[in-house]
């Protein structure tokens, strides 16, 4: 095998792993955004995102640390 083969393989491995990693992080973000939008659409909101009246009624729950 020539030196060009080893160089090409190194850059190919780096490109594949980097692109897969970037794609995975990006797609994961899109999936989570979609899920949050669906929850929002079905009327389930975080305590801090709820209207004042709802929060005063105590509908919200503790435990949303993030």
């Amino acid at each position: 095998m020539t030196h060009t083969f080893y160089i090409a393989m190194s850059y190919a491995v780096t490109a594949i792993v980097t692109l897969c990693l970037t794609g995975w992080v990006w797609l994961d973000g899109r999936a989570r955004q979609k899920e949050l939008a669906e929850l929002e659409a079905s009327g389930i909101r975080r305590r801090s995102a709820q209207p004042r009246n709802d929060a005063a009624r105590g509908d919200a729950v503790k435990g949303d640390t993030a």
Binding site: W26, G29, R32, S42, I44, R45, V61, G63, T65, A66
Partner: peptide, 22 residues
């Protein structure tokens, strides 16, 4: 990627909390 992955993790925890609330 680290900032993006951290943001995803925060969203994931919010989803879990909201599902629990539901």
């Amino acid at each position: 990627l680290h900032v993006m992955a951290m943001r995803n993790e925060i969203w994931r925890r919010r989803i879990t909390a909201q599902r629990r609330m539901a």
